[in-house]
Amino acid sequence: MNTLVIAEMALDQPASASLEHLAVARSLAGEGRVIVLLLGAQIAAAESLIARGADKVIVGTPSAFDGYNSDAWTACAASVANEHAVALVLAAHTPRGADLAPRLAFRLNGACATGCVGVEQQDGALHFTRASHGGNVRETLRFKTECVVATVRAGIYDALPVDAKRQGEIVTLSPAPASRVRVIERKRESGVGVRLEDAKVIIAGGRGLNGPEGFDVLATLAETLGGVVGASRVPCDLGWCSHAMQIGLTGKTVTPELYIAVGISGASHHLAGCGNAKTMVAINTDKDAAIFRDAKFGVVGDYAKVVPALTAAIRALPTTS
């Protein structure tokens, strides 16, 4: 079976999620080929994808593909999928992947599964496991079509180790196909340090912060731990913080070593994006808050007192060797 991975970039490197999906594609492809479509990136990134399991990388360099354009990218992906007769397309479950995947599925007369946490082969058929009902239900689907396009959540699979000896083909694409969509302006938030998606430590705040100032308290703790600040949806909707900080079903999927949920009740919609954190800590005034069911360590108390105390205590810890 030939498979296609739609890779994304994180700054100037392929995103870690894309490397994970490449490993899945490699294991499912069997004797078949793993094709990667990498748009808006340089050739060097394509080479690194071969070392991680790709057989062929089709690159659209920034001169032709200077940013995401749903219409042009869908057209590109469809022609690559058709040309290589792929049976499975994997994309990241990000705003791009979730925009592209369903359109591509219909374009290919295939089917689509979004937000997958598992893609497996059983009795010769592909099975897609995903959450529904705000993360409260897990369903496994199979499709009757010849091609399936799936978005896969980050942090579920391990990437393959780098194998510098792997051989593969690199092809460049140019120009970009015509698009019915015109990109007028991009408003990027100035990238401050590590992306949430790659962070090892995340301090996330919710409605319980009771206002935007609460995020300053979290930022001090994050600084102490070398972590990044995230949020539940409520403070984003209330304008206390940027929506780019939203974690959850319709926000980012994060997989840190340590996740400290502060003033977050623990709705399934939120946990859909952080439930795979290695260690979760919850700080909440309500001892019955659902978040404690997912936390390894819990503190019942007012964050405004507990978080500064925790920050000071961490600073006072002896350094480890």
């Binding site: 089917a111 993360g135 239900v137 199979r142 069911r293």
Partner: peptide, 16 residues
């Protein structure tokens, strides 16, 4: 085009 093979509630094992 979709066939549902399985449906279940994800289990939680964490003790706080």
């Amino acid at each position: 085009r979709a066939v549902r093979e399985r449906l279940l509630a994800p289990s939680k094992v964490i003790q706080c």
